[in-house]
Design a protein around this nucleic acid. Structure first.
Lengths: 139, 139
DNA sequence: GTGGGCATGAGAACCATTCTCACACATCGG
DNA sequence: CCGATGTGTGAGAATGGTTCTCATGCCCAC
């Protein structure tokens, strides 16, 4: 308690591996699993250890640069995202993601929680569907 | 269409183990992981194999008697739920869950998806917070 | 340029979940 | 009631995503 470490300097080093992971994510327009990213990096020539990919992703999440999504099978997927609060509209077929931000749903969550006496509220909202392109390709 | 099996007879046998799993879930008022349920059953004296617990849970989910929730660590949790569409308000501290159903959020999801040309829409909405009891206990 | 210490990577460890397969028993026709 | 039948069970192995270990590498401050 005597240490004045309010925010604790992150001291995050810039390495080839972390740069490669972030650069790759910048090019993706949907959620990608850690395993996928690892394979993509290897194919690309920027070989990075699997453990390092996980560490880099976790660091980026902590820094608020990525959003995480858990699939039905429990596998985590990551995506480069804007730092402001938002939710996702994800295509089940191709994985393309659209960020959506809407005040009504935020207010709804707050109201529902308040009605039941809950405090310190957070929420998790994801919408899944088939995007226009995939819907057209299907038939 | 030639087979008159509209709902496909489940042919689900009633065994001591399945009865025990469902009975235990009836007594819980929050989400419980498969591992927890397995341990609880053993403590209770109704020993059931772990694999069987998983199978029973999966069967119950298929029958629409349970809802599943994925934790941040990817572990699945189950809860006895009403069969009508609803979402959850979960206490982070004690796990107590309240079912919430509200038309506005359903309409919101449908509208957002439609605006972006998405079809065949589903959504996943969970609200987390600290319930009144836990909030009072904390301070 | 040099040193300290965080970052890396290969593989082991971990852990939830699923699979395998021989055996048990719920269900049903007789 | 009884025996045939095939689904349900259970112990342990297998799977697969994620994390940990630890010796070595290299970024960064000085």
């Amino acid at each position: 308690m005597s240490s004045p470490e309010t925010t604790e300097a992150p001291a995050r080093r810039q390495t080839r591996q972390r740069t490669a992971v972030l650069a790759l994510l910048e090019q993706q327009d949907g959620f990608r699993s850690a395993q996928d990213l690892h394979a993509l990096l290897r194919d690309r020539g920027d070989a990075v250890g699997l453990a390092t990919v996980y560490r880099a992703l976790q660091a980026l999440v902590d820094d608020g640069l990525l959003d995480v999504l858990r699939g039905d099978d429990g596998e985590a997927s990551y995506r480069r995202c804007s730092p402001v609060h938002h939710h996702h509209l994800v295509c089940r077929s191709c994985g393309t993601t659209v960020e959506v931000a809407d005040a009504p749903v935020e207010r709804w969550a707050a109201r529902v929680a308040a009605e039941h006496g809950f405090t310190d509220v957070s929420h998790q909202v994801e919408v899944f569907g088939t995007c226009a392109a995939c819907h057209a390709a299907q038939r």
